[in-house]
Deep mutational scan, measured.
Amino acid sequence: LQAFIKTLTGKTFTVEMEPSDTIENLKAKIQDKEGIPPDQQRLIFAGKQLEDGRTLSDYNIQKESTLHLVL
């Protein structure tokens, strides 16, 4: 599935991932794409901060969901 990552500066980019991917995997993909170390990334979806060990499906993240990236 493709999801949108929106930063506080208003920049939006897309990442490809599977519902079974962990938040940790997602942070690694963001690092590959944007060069931001995972330990500096905080991802917010539906008002909740996402925990590394959980999966996208745990948070009911669907295709074309928008996640907010806070540094």
Rank of each mutant, 00 (worst) to 15 (best):
L1W: 11
L1R: 05
A3K: 02
F4Q: 10
I5T: 01
I5N: 02
K6G: 03
K6Q: 11
L8V: 13
T9Y: 14
T9I: 06
G10A: 03
K11M: 08
T12S: 10
F13A: 01
F13R: 00
T14V: 13
T14Y: 11
V15Y: 03
E16W: 14
M17K: 00
M17S: 04
E18M: 14
P19K: 07
P19D: 09
S20Q: 09
D21I: 05
D21R: 02
D21A: 08
T22R: 06
I23Y: 01
L26T: 01
L26P: 00
K27W: 02
A28Y: 13
I30C: 01
I30F: 02
D32H: 11
K33P: 01
K33T: 09
K33R: 12
E34V: 15
E34N: 09
E34L: 15
G35I: 02
I36S: 04
I36V: 08
P37W: 05
P37G: 04
P38H: 11
Q40R: 12
Q41C: 05
Q41D: 00
Q41Y: 13
R42V: 15
R42K: 12
L43C: 01
L43T: 00
L43H: 00
I44R: 05
I44D: 04
F45V: 04
F45Q: 03
A46Y: 09
A46L: 12
Q49F: 13
Q49H: 12
Q49R: 09
L50Y: 01
L50F: 02
E51T: 05
E51H: 07
E51Y: 05
D52Y: 05
G53W: 14
G53N: 12
R54M: 12
L56Y: 03
L56G: 02
L56M: 08
S57P: 03
S57L: 11
D58N: 04
Y59H: 03
Y59E: 02
Y59L: 06
N60E: 06
I61D: 04
I61Y: 06
I61K: 04
Q62F: 11
Q62H: 11
E64W: 14
E64M: 10
S65M: 12
L67Q: 01
L67W: 04
H68I: 15
L69D: 00
L69I: 12
L69K: 00
V70H: 10
V70F: 14
L71H: 06
